[in-house]
Design a protein around this nucleic acid. Sequence first.
DNA 1: TAGTGGTCTAGACCACGCT
DNA 2: GCGTGGTCTAGACCACTAG
Lengths: 249, 249
Amino acid sequence: MGTTTGRTASRPGTSPAEPKYWQLRTALTDALDAEFSVGQVLPDERTLAARFGVARATLRQALDQLELEGRLQRRRGVGTTVAPPRVGVDVSPAGQTWPGAEDDPWTVTGLTAVGAPPAVARALDVPRGTPLSLVGRVLVAAGQPVAIERLYAPPGPRPAAGADEVLAALRDQPLEGQDRSVELGSADAEQSRGLDRLPGSPVLLVTTRYTAAGQVAAVSLATYRADTCRLTFALAGSAAAPVRVGHRP
Amino acid sequence: MGTTTGRTASRPGTSPAEPKYWQLRTALTDALDAEFSVGQVLPDERTLAARFGVARATLRQALDQLELEGRLQRRRGVGTTVAPPRVGVDVSPAGQTWPGAEDDPWTVTGLTAVGAPPAVARALDVPRGTPLSLVGRVLVAAGQPVAIERLYAPPGPRPAAGADEVLAALRDQPLEGQDRSVELGSADAEQSRGLDRLPGSPVLLVTTRYTAAGQVAAVSLATYRADTCRLTFALAGSAAAPVRVGHRP
DNA sequence: TAGTGGTCTAGACCACGCT
DNA sequence: GCGTGGTCTAGACCACTAG
């Protein structure tokens, strides 16, 4: 890996043009493309910083970028490795189905009785604190947990009913529609634990509202690891161009 | 705004539990919910850092989080303000239509003749460097540019044809399908200029492949500001539950 | 020109995974 | 224990905006 960066000179009297960490990012990107293969470990941060002649904090700013872009993977106590391509996760409806249908790849992790949190209360159009069932689920791809879901639905017919019963109760209703939104967020303490990340890691927050009988019947808040995931949508009519599920060499 | 943070004591001999910047983020989030309204300017970073008894770098780490979550907006030379709720941008197909159809909200910004970059060449399944038309477009919402698109398509019938002609040529073909993917990225120098952001700002990268005549006919790379945007999908059958534009209590 | 956020430095210590 | 990445400090200077 080269040591020279100087593509924007930033001599005294010249406009700095691009910040150092951005030049570093570019240099590292090129190096990754040219000289590194997936899974390979990079030199440690102190060494890299010295090699590029910058402070460690500046180098870290560049590595932060590359991690955000899914090019690098950093693990405390281990090192920094070249990340595999992002896993493509299909989030298209694949027909109008309730969660927990036939080929649903999610795994139930638990069931809790909760009062509707503000955001959920708003989406379900019920008063906040309304008793709800909270079904926890996790999505595993390529051997790693890539997403965590909190599914809020009306409580099952009996207390202490299993999560499967809650999902079955939903499936008993005709599903009229669903809408989804995707936005950037950061993992809270609980989520970061489930996703094997540190608190504050960038995540893609997917909110799904399921409607039945003319009203919102369930709300799902799914949190995807932004570093390792690519969300794919196979839209109507695209059967001729199936979306591939991600791969890891 | 309160000064006390200490929810995880971190006394000597105690496990730090949560890093300071995370506690700060929580404290600031609560303060934003309780005591601030949209558009209000926060005290400057040096003042805030002093008030919380941390170094400015640590405070900035917390502010970075909040900006990533779309809660704050920072402008150099001006200050930090409370951000409005994210703008909901519909990215669902709204029927199978080519770009540039009737009610397409995008605005053409330019047309260039380019050779296919590697990523585009792969998606279109043509050799890299194949001559293509590159149509630049921008999406404006709430008075601000929220997304930039690069649309790659076969060159128009004549050289120097207008962007409209390139789009019209696409519309002449029957659209068989499209698929989309969403992932996290960072804005390059050019994009950051167009989106009025600094290089490296987090963006949502939406890739769309349009298929016609049994093959991919065009590829669109759209870059959305992750701080201000929420991508919404109105899925089939959800006509009864239109997606609202974002709100925050 | 004053005040803001953005960049950068040179250190220190901590938490974690491995050996 | 050792080496890794993660956190934190206390400064400095720069780029930009606005009065």
